[in-house]
Design a binder for these strands. Structure first.
Lengths: 206, 206
DNA sequence: GTCTATAGGTTGATAGAC
DNA sequence: GTCTATCAACCTATAGAC
C-alpha cells in the first residue's frame, strides 16, 4: 500500500487519479445516458473534478471520445484465451457464446455511439484495422478450434468451421443487441439453448 | 394525376410538401451524418425550408425524432409478403436473407440513433411493443414457412424451424451491421453463401 | 404555411490563479 | 494538476410579419 490515504478527499481514490476517474465516469455516462448526453460537464461532475480537468487530460472532446473508445475496447484485446479448454465441444460452444454475449454487452454502447457520428465511425474503423481486431479475429479463434476438433474426428467432417464460427458469433451479437434494447416479446424467441442445439446438430458426429 | 405541376418551385415537388421534405431530409441527414449532427438547422437547410418550419410541423425536436423513427420503421410494416413464393426452400432462404439485409440496412441508422439517447431508446421499445413488431415477427413468418415445408416432407424432420429462422435473421442482422461499419477484413470472413450453406446442411432432407 | 429575427440555454474550449 | 471564471458558438424554441 503505497497510496497516501491521509486526507480522504473523495472516497478511497488516489489524489492524482483524475484521468482514470474521468475515463471511468465517461464510460458510465456513455452506457447510462448514451453519447447524446456525454458532455464534458456531465463527465466532470460524475468524476468529481472540474470541467477544465477534462480538457487538460484529453485536450478536446474528440480526444476524450477516442480515449473512451480505446479503453472500452480493451475487452476485445484480452479475448480468446479460454477457447482451448479441456472440455468437450458442446461445453466450449456454451462458454464461447456466454463470453461473446458479455463482451458485446460491454462494447455495444461504444459501437452505437460510434455509428451516431461519422468522425467517430471512421476512427473506430481505423482503430479496428490498426489493432487487427474485428470479427475475423473471433472467427479465426473459434473456427480453428472447431477445425481442430473436426480433423481429430471429434466433430462431423462435413461442416465449414469458419462459417459455423461466424454463425455463433453473429447469433451472440444479435442476442446482446436485443438484450440491450430490451424489446418486448423477447421471451417468445427461441432461447440460446435452442439456437445452440441447432448448431450442435450441425457439427455433431454421426 | 391530380397534383398541380404548373409552377415547378424546386423540382417536381408539390408546393406544400414541406412536411415530407423535412422528413426526407431528416432521414438523409440521419443516415449520412448520424444523430449527432441532426439539428433543426441542418435538416431545414437540406429540405430547403426555414428552421421555424421544422417546429411548425413537428412541434419540437422530440416530435421530429419520433416522426423520423416512425417513417424510417415503415419498411418493417410491409415486410413478410414474399415469404410464400412458389420457389424451393433454398431459393426462399436466399431471397429472405437478401431482403432482411436490405431491411436492416435501412433501419439500422435509426436503431443506432435510438441507442444513443435513453429517451429515444424507450420510445423505440414502446413503439415496437405497440405495433407488435420485433424479431419474433420475423421468426414467426420465416419459422412457419420452414415448419410447413418440414411437415410437407420437403425439408428434414429433425430441426427446430423457429430456431433456424432466428439464426438466419441474426446472421442477416450481423451482416448488415458489419456492412455499415465497413470494417477492414470483411473479405476475409465467410461469405453469405458459405453461411447459408451451413443452414442448408441443417435443414436439407436426408 | 413559411419566413426573419431573436430570446434563452447549453456546450466546447481557454485564460489565469493556486 | 486542478480550480474558477468566462467567451464564443451553437442549438432549441418562440414571436410576429407576410
Amino acid at each position: 500500500m503505497t497510496t497516501t490515504e491521509q486526507h480522504s478527499r473523495r472516497r478511497g481514490r488516489p489524489p492524482t487519479g483524475g484521468r482514470e476517474a474521468i475515463l471511468e465516469a465517461a464510460l458510465v455516462v456513455l452506457r447510462e445516458q448514451g453519447i447524446a448526453n456525454l458532455t464534458s460537464r456531465e463527465v466532470a461532475a460524475r468524476a468529481g473534478v472540474s470541467d477544465a480537468s477534462v480538457y487538460y487530460h484529453f485536450h478536446d472532446r474528440a480526444g476524450l471520445l477516442a480515449a473512451i473508445f480505446e479503453s472500452g475496447m480493451k475487452p476485445l484485446l484480452v479475448m480468446g484465451e479460454q477457447a482451448g479448454g479441456p472440455n468437450g465441444p458442446l461445453d466450449v460452444l456454451e462458454r464461447a457464446t456466454a463470453s461473446l454475449e458479455q463482451f458485446f454487452d460491454e462494447v455495444l454502447p461504444i459501437m452505437h455511439a460510434a455509428q451516431s457520428d461519422p468522425e467517430l465511425k471512421e476512427a473506430v474503423a481505423r482503430y479496428v484495422e490498426l489493432k487487427d481486431l474485428g470479427p475475423h479475429k473471433g472467427v479465426a479463434i473459434l473456427g480453428s478450434y472447431l477445425r481442430a476438433q473436426q480433423e481429430a474426428g471429434v466433430l462431423a467432417p462435413g461442416f465449414d468451421p469458419d462459417a459455423v464460427a461466424l454463425l455463433v458469433i453473429d447469433m451472440s451479437f444479435a442476442r446482446a443487441v436485443r438484450q440491450q434494447m430490451h424489446l418486448a416479446g423477447e421471451e417468445r424467441l427461441p432461447s440460446r439453448e435452442a439456437l445452440l442445439d441447432q448448431i450442435w446438430r450441425l457439427i455433431q458426429p454421426a
